[in-house]
Design a protein around this nucleic acid. Structure first.
Lengths: 214, 214
DNA sequence: AGGGTGGATGACGATTTCGTCAGATCTGAG
DNA sequence: CTCAGATCTGACGAAATCGTCATCCACCCT
């Protein structure tokens, strides 16, 4: 019994996971390209999978898209977690996350554009990266680092800045994404009540090098 | 000759305009509902016009949607023009426009949601309300009212705040839209370098009463 | 008054997209 | 080696959507 349920490197499961993953990746590509309504056939061909395999894994296109967005969010969140581990100052965590998000817009354009295209709807909700930002803001407020009257209205600015920064970087590839991200982060920090000098300083600390990771 | 070309209240033209207008309004409704891909037939039925009339006026759905967005932008822009006429202080013009935009999200939800759904793409461009905001920011900077390093990056925050404020008001109808708009405007003004007291004062001046207009 | 024109209409054939299903292929266990 | 179960596959009929076109109506001009 143990041998049956305790699958070793079970090839069946891996094949299934591979197919599903291919579909999710393909969906992300189309979402990023602004074509979330791509025909199923075209999508499965892009994923190099049979037409029917789609229906083995999902009931509808909406379901796949939801899964694709969730996957993108998970990967983005995990990356931010990993890159901000060990920081204890909430302002520092927030600043680092925001600066990194700005940089990631350029490094992982598809991942980023998936979030962009759904980001507006998620900005005020409890899905996506919003809870993380809200947590950072409230942590910072509790720790006396930020001075915000209404966290939700602060979220409005933060989410909006993140989204439009992504859009700006996408529209203007010639821009220095790191500098832009740092500048916007600094602006946002000032809006959150951090003293200007400190905001400036925090946004010029060195960041983990994104180029050295997978 | 003069009588021919100088059409009096030409009924033919009015009928054509009426049909076109009905299509544009219907399109705006569907865009606002998040269904820009509505079938042509369904759209024409909602507009209460014949199937073929659509093809008399537009070549493709994209063309109609473009026209619908342009119409929404024109109406929004004209409204803001009208409501800020006579103001000479750029900071005042900007603040008034932003506060009014926040309020309009509630008064004209469909018009507003059309802008929301396309706003992100337009935020950094030279279309939509972006040129107006950019003009106000640059005017303010020239007049020494604002202190911005990079107008484009300031735009990032302004556009983002406007978009996410609209989203917030849509998601949370229980919120006091006037208070939220004023608060966010105040935050944005501070980010633009206006002294906090002045920002606060400007955002509490009385506004034209929207309820008294058509 | 009535001929001519611009606009509206919706039925129709063509095309696209959908979702299923029966069979092919692969995997792991006995 | 063989079999049962799991997954993949693409062809197929059904359904939705498209864009056109012949036709009709209302209005304008003479």
């Amino acid at each position: 019994m143990a041998q049956q349920t305790r699958h070793a490197p079970n090839r069946l499961e891996r094949r299934k996971a591979h197919t599903r993953s291919a579909l999710v990746r393909a969906a992300q590509t189309f979402i990023a390209a602004g074509k979330p309504n791509v025909p199923i056939l075209e999508l499965t061909q892009a994923a190099d999978v049979g037409m029917g395999s789609f229906y083995n894994h999902f009931d509808s296109r909406e379901q796949l898209i939801e899964a694709a967005v969730e996957d993108a969010l998970d990967r983005y969140g995990a990356l931010l977690d990993e890159l901000t581990v060990g920081l204890d100052d909430p302002a520092q965590v927030f600043a680092q996350s925001f600066r990194l998000t700005g940089r990631l817009h350029r490094r992982q354009p598809e991942l980023s554009r998936v979030l962009l295209s759904t980001g507006l709807a998620l900005a005020g909700s409890d899905k996506g990266l919003a809870p993380r930002a809200r947590r950072d803001i409230e942590d910072g407020a509790r720790a006396g680092r930020f001075r915000v009257r209404d966290p939700e209205l602060a979220m409005v600015i933060v989410a909006g800045a993140a989204l439009c920064l992504g859009q700006l970087l996408h529209d203007h590839p010639e821009r220095d994404d790191a500098a832009a991200a740092d500048q916007v982060t600094e602006d946002v920090l000032r809006m959150l009540g951090l003293p200007p000098e400190e905001a400036h300083e925090i946004c010029h600390r060195p960041l983990p090098d994104l180029d050295t990771r997978p």
